[in-house]
């Protein structure tokens, strides 16, 4: 299997920009930003890679809590942040390209949100 280790560092939201800036300075590449809905909160993983070394920063936020955008550091982060906002309803502040919830056109607002009530209209499952 994959030989290289994966590290996950849990950090508070306030440290996010500083840690990301440091990784950017070290020459890390942004791989992805992914969000996971827990029972009452969200876990957001920021994944970086440098020469096959895989690093993750993890923040945990409550529903409605604002997350600062890292698109000032990694320009390309806007796709992931807009996705996070459109699917999970996490407010991200300071995005360089803010679609205001129109990047992913879903029939229902924030379909993956943990505060969403009921299973909703899922015809096939």
């Amino acid at each position: 299997m994959t030989a290289k280790e994966q590290t996950i560092i849990e950090i508070p939201v306030t440290d996010l920009l500083e840690r990301t800036r440091k990784l950017h300075g070290d020459g890390y590449r942004l791989v992805q930003i992914g969000c996971t809905g827990l029972a009452e909160s969200y876990e957001i993983n920021y994944s970086f890679d440098k020469e096959y070394r895989f690093q993750n920063l993890r923040i945990t936020v409550a529903p409605g809590e604002e997350v600062p955008s890292i698109s000032g550091i990694y320009w390309g982060a806007f796709v992931y942040e807009n996705e996070m906002h459109d699917l999970f309803g996490i407010p991200v502040t300071g995005m360089n390209i803010d679609f205001q919830g129109a990047m992913i056109r879903t029939g229902e607002k924030h379909p993956f949100s943990v505060t969403r009530k009921g299973e909703g209209p899922c015809r096939n499952a």
Binding site: D86, I97, F99, A102, M103, I104, R105, T106, P111, F112
Partner: peptide, 13 residues
């Protein structure tokens, strides 16, 4: 300005 979402299928869910 790109936008997607015309065929979101919710496979992750």
């Amino acid at each position: 300005v790109p936008s997607i979402g015309y065929i979101h299928r919710g496979l992750e869910k």
